[in-house]
């Protein structure tokens, strides 16, 4: 080994030590800091999947915008779905700080090489689904995402603060819609219960497989890009939701759900993990439809993006000639 090699190795070791020290001290890694390739690629995957989830997540609720039964609910829903597009934009921007490219990430989503949250593969046949998604799905997302406001990757952590604020609004609005429906007619109350029956178990699946089977957890915890295990977050969500369900007057569809005074937590039944596997692997009720809508929007919009680029180039040329 010659001297140059030794110097390079020492340099690499020193950079890794710096990186680990930054994480150790709970400080943030910033875009221009050195980072291990695997940290970079793991962060790109995590942020891109989150961005994809925001964009695909516009579809199930977006389907109710034109049909919302009051103008106030229509405005709230339209504003919420618009927020999700905005979240997708910040998150793609955060991924770009790691050298990822938005068109490439979109191509990976459309081709199925990158995933999005499996919850958005369930259909929304009822308007009560808008409220239940706000309450349960956004509630579960908040449990997952609040710890990410302390992610070791700075741009992601900062994006998550704004996103979590907006998500907590969405959750309150969803719950307020359900409260209104529960105070309404018998038909409206039935709509809410029927919707809760469909969304409860998929919401629990949003925290991922049980810890014993989770593949990414250990490294992600060491890098502080994940702060709590799947099972810890799932338990937190159940404990938070049970009293909310009682206040609402709906029944959560789990006969094993009960308070365990010894643990200080609610016990709950076993999630059907084969269903989660099926939906993640592409066999959920709406997987094909969700990707098809995204693919069609992207492909149908290609001529628009080309026109914008061509026009910008023409202007730049004309300005260059004028100068």
């Amino acid at each position: 080994m010659d001297a140059a090699d030794t110097d390079a190795r020492t340099g690499a070791d020193a950079r890794l030590a710096d990186f680990e020290r930054t994480i150790e001290r709970d400080q943030r890694i910033e875009p221009r800091d050195w980072m291990p390739d695997r940290y970079r690629s793991t962060m790109v995957r995590q942020i891109a999947q989150h961005a994809h989830s925001e964009i695909i997540g516009m579809q199930p609720e977006g389907a109710w915008i034109t049909r919302a039964p009051s103008l106030r609910r229509k405005a709230i829903l339209l504003a919420k779905v618009q927020d999700e597009a905005g979240h997708g934009l910040y998150l793609y921007s955060a991924a770009e700080t790691l050298g990822a490219d938005r068109p490439e990430l979109t191509a990976r989503l459309i081709s199925g090489r990158q995933k999005y949250s499996s919850i958005f593969n369930y259909p929304t046949p009822s308007f009560a689904d808008v409220g239940v998604i706000g309450w349960l799905v956004d509630g579960a997302a908040i449990c997952n995402q609040v710890p990410l406001c302390r992610s070791s990757y700075g741009p992601y952590a900062r994006a998550m603060i704004r996103i979590c604020k907006e998500e907590s609004f969405h959750q309150r609005q969803g719950y307020e819609l359900l409260m209104t429906l529960m105070r309404g007619t018998e038909a409206q109350r039935r709509m809410v219960q029927e919707s809760v029956d469909r969304w409860w178990w998929p919401s629990l699946m949003m925290f991922g497989p049980p810890d014993a089977e989770s593949t990414h957890t250990a490294q992600s915890m060491a890098w502080k890009i994940k702060r709590h295990t799947n099972d810890e977050l799932r338990q937190r969500f159940v404990d938070m939701t049970v009293p909310q369900a009682a206040a609402l007057g709906v029944t959560l569809p789990d006969p094993d759900l009960r308070w365990n005074a010894e643990r200080g937590h609610h016990d709950f039944g076993e999630v059907d993990w084969s269903e989660l596997k099926r939906v993640i692997s592409g066999d959920g009720p709406c997987n094909a439809e969700r990707i098809e809508v995204r693919r069609a929007a992207h492909e149908d919009g290609a001529w628009v993006r080309e026109a914008a680029a061509a026009h910008a180039a023409k202007r730049a040329r004309r300005e260059g000639e004028a100068a």
């Binding site: 977006g62 597009a85 793609y92 929007a297 919009g301």
Partner: peptide, 18 residues
């Protein structure tokens, strides 16, 4: 509103919804 989720780029999703 009918454009929602069908816009040619995300910036336009936000603008048309707005």
């Amino acid at each position: 509103q009918e454009w929602c989720t069908h816009a040619p780029e995300l910036e336009e999703e936000v603008a048309l919804a707005n």
